[in-house]
Amino acid sequence: MIRSASLAIAMLVAATAVPAQAQSARVLGDFRDWSSYAADDGTGTVCFAMSRPKSTEPAGAAGGDAYVYVSNRPAEDVTAEFNVVAGYTFQTGSMASVTIGGQSFPLFTQGDAAWLDDSGQAANLAAAIRAGSTLVVTGTSANGTQVTQSYSLSGATAAQQAVGAEC
């Protein structure tokens, strides 16, 4: 279920990058370094807040589009689901992590994506995102390189509020 939902969101995110297809996802707002969207994925409305990394180390390690998003899917009773699309393929069987301030959350990986290893931590991670200033995702690429991506959390609270109001 997680893979199909994140695939739908990834397609919606890709659609927002292509102006001719932008009607598939509705912009709820742009909030500094974060944006919020809503769309119908066929099972109901999906809303998500997303951001792109401010930096990736080592430089050039992420060859594709990278972003994090927090999504709500009311039809599936899902709130504050965190997902990473790294822009590179994770090493098979590896774990990644997301760190905000002093809090670290383990992520399981598959392909170029990662999710919370313990979905019961979703509310805690969402709260850390609202309270923090920088989010850091650390993972290991398929070739064994440790990759660190840093995201600004400026605007994350407003973006999550817009998602909550819509979904």
Rank of each mutant, 00 (worst) to 15 (best):
150 S>R: 13
91 Q>V: 04
86 A>S: 14
2 I>M: 03
80 A>S: 13
123 A>F: 12
147 V>L: 10
16 T>A: 12
62 A>C: 06
70 V>Y: 00
1 M>V: 15
119 S>C: 03
102 G>D: 15
148 T>C: 03
48 F>W: 09
92 T>P: 01
30 D>Y: 04
80 A>Y: 15
99 T>Q: 14
70 V>E: 04
25 A>G: 07
110 Q>G: 05
1 M>G: 08
9 I>Y: 07
77 D>N: 10
55 S>E: 15
2 I>V: 13
150 S>H: 06
101 G>H: 08
116 L>K: 04
99 T>C: 03
134 T>S: 11
140 T>A: 08
48 F>K: 07
78 V>A: 09
167 C>I: 08
113 A>M: 09
107 L>H: 11
40 D>A: 10
153 L>R: 07
94 S>Q: 01
14 A>K: 12
62 A>W: 09
114 A>K: 00
53 P>W: 04
149 Q>W: 00
111 G>Q: 12
78 V>F: 03
125 L>T: 04
125 L>G: 05
147 V>D: 11
122 A>M: 03
17 A>L: 05
55 S>F: 02
29 G>P: 12
126 A>S: 09
62 A>L: 01
160 Q>H: 10
47 C>Y: 01
105 F>R: 04
104 S>I: 06
153 L>E: 09
13 V>R: 13
163 V>W: 01
58 P>H: 12
115 W>D: 14
155 G>Y: 06
50 M>T: 07
45 T>A: 02
75 A>S: 13
106 P>K: 00
2 I>H: 10
91 Q>K: 12
95 M>P: 06
157 T>H: 13
29 G>W: 01
94 S>M: 06
151 Y>C: 04
137 V>Y: 07
133 S>C: 01
1 M>E: 06
27 V>H: 11
114 A>Q: 05
76 E>N: 07
102 G>A: 09
87 G>M: 04
64 G>M: 10
116 L>S: 05
15 A>W: 03
102 G>Y: 07
138 T>S: 11
114 A>N: 03
36 S>H: 09
31 F>P: 04
26 R>E: 08
146 Q>L: 05
47 C>S: 06
24 S>M: 02
12 L>M: 11
150 S>P: 00
106 P>Y: 12
128 A>N: 10
146 Q>A: 13
73 R>M: 13
77 D>F: 02
164 G>M: 10
10 A>V: 02
104 S>N: 01
18 V>T: 12
1 M>T: 15
4 S>E: 09
28 L>D: 00
60 G>K: 02
126 A>W: 02
158 A>N: 04
113 A>F: 11
133 S>Q: 15
141 S>R: 14
42 G>Q: 07
123 A>W: 14
117 D>K: 02
64 G>P: 06
151 Y>R: 00
161 Q>L: 08
1 M>P: 04
153 L>V: 03
6 S>D: 15
79 T>K: 14
55 S>N: 14
166 E>V: 02
117 D>H: 04
152 S>V: 00
138 T>H: 10
4 S>L: 05
7 L>D: 15
59 A>H: 10
71 S>Q: 08
123 A>G: 02
72 N>F: 02
